[in-house]
Design a protein around this nucleic acid. Sequence first.
DNA 1: CTAAAACCTGACGTTGACGTCAGAGGCAAG
DNA 2: CTTGCCTCTGACGTCAACGTCAGGTTTTAG
Lengths: 146, 146
Amino acid sequence: MRIGELAARSGVSVRALRYYEEQGLLDAYRSDSGQRHYPESAADRVQLIQMLYAAGLSSRTIAELLPCVEAKVSTPESRARLATERNRIDAQIAALTRTRDRLDAVIRLSGSPNSGCTWIPDQDVAADEQDTPVPGDPRVRITHKS
Amino acid sequence: MRIGELAARSGVSVRALRYYEEQGLLDAYRSDSGQRHYPESAADRVQLIQMLYAAGLSSRTIAELLPCVEAKVSTPESRARLATERNRIDAQIAALTRTRDRLDAVIRLSGSPNSGCTWIPDQDVAADEQDTPVPGDPRVRITHKS
DNA sequence: CTAAAACCTGACGTTGACGTCAGAGGCAAG
DNA sequence: CTTGCCTCTGACGTCAACGTCAGGTTTTAG
């Protein structure tokens, strides 16, 4: 198939596909006129590329690990790299989970009439830390050069 | 405290703090000479900002939602916004989990004796929790001081 | 008092993953 | 053959979250 169809099938832009090729993530056969042609399997590969991009991997890292993931072949270095990225993703999941739970807490408590929401575990909500912007508060002006 | 101390405490750069202020995420009192002064609570706020950045929220979105999380109040719109972001994070967690599982599968398969083309004998795969020390690698830096 | 360290405000630089535009050529249909 | 869509190769534009530098002021340590 040509690039337009692959783009439509995999849901990415034509530009992105050319960029992937430029980064060494996706190769194409060229017709005599120079047009790119892809096998059916390219769609899956693009999905995989998108997956790894979404996980925060850079083009270079993807280029390094993609052969391993596709061919399931690895050297000790690539296995170490895989493990590193896996752990990074794991940490990211944990952080996202904490963030989600915090947002959940806010959502649940935002309907309550009182202010007993404690998003700091065992610390009292300090009454006012002079942090609230008072409507008619004349802030100190920035006096540059007295 | 002044900006340098806040930066040290919260683990972000001075430039980042000034940027947060510019984006309306963090306000500071100014001394007569124009220097920023922050209350103790600013450190927590910075942590929260970092958390939301790490979850993929933009400055503008954080600016919209941060008052809800801090003041524990919300309008129907902000609740909807919170729910939207929560669901986005949830989807992101699901996608990351799938990606991690896929990497796990590759790691297991490539570690198997018969399926991996390990052309370098036996080496320890103890490359764990060690991030790639590439000099100019500007990936997602969350600067967790651990 | 003095020198170093910290802070200030612009303002331009960086990076990755593309978007977008220009100009030129290819491909099936009528 | 021409019309209209698709594709090609550069090459510049974009956007966010800062990094970095310059030139000047303020605070602090000795």
